[in-house]
Write a protein that binds this DNA or RNA. Structure first.
Length: 356
DNA sequence: CATTCGTGGGT
DNA sequence: TACCCAAGAAT
């Protein structure tokens, strides 16, 4: 299979051109200051489906607060979620802490250096395993992300649908032969850096490309037609109503989201999905067993997820007496304490408009 | 294999 | 505006 893709391909020349380009042209990024496996690991988790420019400030703050594997292992979950607030895909940081604790307890605090062992850690999939092994330990392992599939689909004229899960293995098999055995770290990072800077999704900069002479897509004028990627269906919308509820002491009511699922364990303002013709008050009565008299809506917030859209209408209301449902996940907090809790971006917008 | 899981930026 | 997408993993 992979022999077919690498037939008549000048592997050594390609490796050298790519690695030399990377060594000369790589960006200075905070996680490239050290090969500490923990630091590399944290950066790779943050970079999953997330842009470099977005990650940089989060990475710097995270390493300041959790400089070592042990520091992260001992941290409170609310602290790590707060450090991740706004970054998205929050299971990443909970899985990271679970994995770090596993390393402390089962590997004497040393990140494992075999694919078998590192892949057993929570949140470490095929890409992250290869990235840490090659970057931190210099092992010739494939690290196939979206950049790598795009670059190699062009260079080797691979016309498989990269949206299919099975396609990743095609590139992994190719890379076991193709990855540089001299400098696997620079080779793997070079493929990704090339994808980020030159071999971009639209209008690739072929005239600046260090491996243009190796590129089969460029030879055939197909660089704009690759990779092949099927579309995914668009999101469905949900109508939501949220309320900033204040009591006589000037406190606001917040609640912790469920242990699993969307935005798991983040905090939010009480909210309901408005389904049929029932009023918003009736929905709150049914879900929270509290009687609220709502004023006119304060704002509307749209929260777009990968697979879902919330259209949130935000209300404010005063309550008297003891309207708390009594659940452990709900609590009244002084407004000044709001910054201690991690909220989804939509609820951060509510905070900015209603409480600050 | 397809879906779930965030967010912000680019075209 | 409406997509697409970015150093993916878990289910």
């Amino acid at each position: 299979m992979e022999q077919m893709h690498l037939q008549d391909f000048y592997i050594t020349e390609f490796q050298d051109d790519l690695v030399n380009w990377f060594l000369e042209n790589q960006r200075e990024l905070p996680w490239r200051m050290s090969k500490d496996p923990y630091r590399v690991w944290v950066s790779e988790i943050m970079l999953q489906q997330t842009r470099v420019d977005t990650v940089i400030p989060y990475y710097n703050a995270f390493m300041r607060e959790f400089p070592t594997l042990e520091a992260l292992a001992e941290a409170e979950e609310d602290r790590i979620l707060k450090a991740w607030e706004g970054l998205g895909y929050y299971s990443r940081v909970r899985n990271l802490q679970t994995a770090v604790r596993e390393v402390v307890e089962q590997y004497e605090g040393r990140v494992p250096d075999t694919r078998e062992e590192i892949s057993s850690l929570k949140g470490v999939g095929p890409y992250t395993a290869g990235a840490v092994l090659s970057i931190a330990y210099g092992k010739p392992e494939p690290a196939v992300d979206g950049n790598v599939m795009r670059v190699l689909s062009r260079v080797l004229l691979v016309e498989e649908d990269i949206a299919k899960a099975s396609t990743r293995k095609i590139f992994e098999n190719i890379l076991y032969d193709l990855v540089s055995k001299d400098d696997p770290s620079s080779f793997n990072q070079g493929l990704m850096e090339l994808g980020a800077l030159i071999c971009t999704p639209t209008s690739p900069g072929c005239l600046l490309c260090p491996v243009r002479e190796h590129c089969r897509a460029y030879d055939h004028g197909k660089q704009n037609d690759l990779p092949i990627k099927s579309k995914k269906k668009k999101q469905t919308a949900k109508q939501m109503a949220a309320v900033v509820l204040r009591n006589e002491r000037g406190e606001v009511l917040i609640e912790k989201r469920p242990e699993t699922g969307l935005l798991a364990r983040l905090w939010q303002f009480p909210n309901v999905e408005v389904t049929d013709g029932r009023s918003v008050e009736e929905h709150f009565q049914a879900s929270y067993d509290i009687e609220v008299v709502l004023d006119e809506p304060i704002q509307k917030v749209e929260h777009v997820f990968s697979h879902l859209i919330w259209n949130i209408t935000v209300y404010e209301a005063q309550v008297s007496g003891q309207p708390d449902g009594g659940q452990a996940t709900r609590k009244w907090i002084p407004v000044k304490d709001i910054e201690k809790y991690a909220f989804p971006v939509s609820h951060q917008k509510i905070i900015q408009k209603s409480l600050l």
